[in-house]
Design a binder for these strands. Structure first.
Lengths: 152, 152
DNA sequence: TAAAAAATCGCCCGAAAGTATGAGGGTAAA
DNA sequence: TTTACCCTCATACTTTCGGGCGATTTTTTA
């Protein structure tokens, strides 16, 4: 309702002004301008009617303001392979495969089967890995590899 | 502009109606009602003025549309100890200690030294852990424990 | 306080894991 | 083509692990 205040003020002012003019005229032309007062009143009333019509029959103007609300979603930290350290330590492709399977809890025999090589081969890879990772146990090797992001 | 059609139609209809009335009167009262035609015109004009005023001076309603913007955050993954599963699996305090040290790459002998108990004790704890975690190797136990958030 | 659960330790044995050493074949760079 | 890796495999040996018993001593709990 506050939004229409300017309209109301305008209408009211107009009415007051008209009546003021009439009143000034009345002071020396007396009452022979009664018809013009009537016309002024008509004008004011129909102006008000127009305003009321527009206000009630018009759908309200709606201005859309797009507000961006930021929603933070936690992401399960994507693993980024540390290629640099892998190369620096001289860990080969095959060794890395063995390392990954080791970390997943597979035994040397299982890894051998999975990679279609002999158990001895896996043992060799494992030994080389331990040397390169400066570990004396597979659990230690896995720990180091994980902190270095060599494996997820 | 389409929204104001009803208003325009109303206003136009009113004007037409007024002129129609005047025209009907004119047929037998001839031209001595010129003043009333004038008043009718005033009414129509000021109605239009009121409509125009309301339409131009009305402030639009501001509607806020909230748009959700997704922001992905790399979670620094703070470790939250999964006490529920630890209890569900019946893992004791001491066993958890052994598990943690195992995951850090310590041998059973080293763990025994660190916890001031015998190697055999650690072996029993380890065995019980493997049963509870349904693992057959320490590396497997560590993997499972990590995915369950029993250890960091 | 009695029962249950947890922690401690021991022994044996077999299965993995790890160490050491050697060696053959493949590939890519010097 | 020679050198240098890398992958492969083998044998022999040592160490560590893990499973399967059993047992005693705390704690904890009902």
């Amino acid at each position: 309702m506050v939004k229409h205040r300017s309209v109301l003020i305008y209408g009211t002012s107009l009415a007051i002004l008209l009546f003021l003019l009439r009143w000034l005229e009345l002071r020396y032309i007396i009452f022979d301008h009664a018809m013009e007062i009537y016309v002024g009143a008509i004008a004011v009333i129909f102006t008000a009617l127009g305003i009321w019509l527009a206000l009630t029959l018009t759908k309200p103007k709606i201005e859309r303001v797009v507000v961006e609300k930021e929603i933070y979603i936690e992401k399960a930290k994507a693993f980024v392979f540390n290629e640099a350290d892998t190369a620096k330590l001289g860990i080969s492709k095959r060794e890395l495969e063995v390392l990954q399977l080791m970390a997943q809890g597979f035994s040397n025999a299982e890894i051998a089967t999975r990679l279609f090589v002999s158990l001895n081969t896996i043992k060799t890879h494992a030994s080389n890995l331990f040397i390169k990772l400066d570990a004396s146990r597979r659990t230690q090797a896995i720990e180091k590899a994980k902190t270095l992001s060599l494996i997820p």
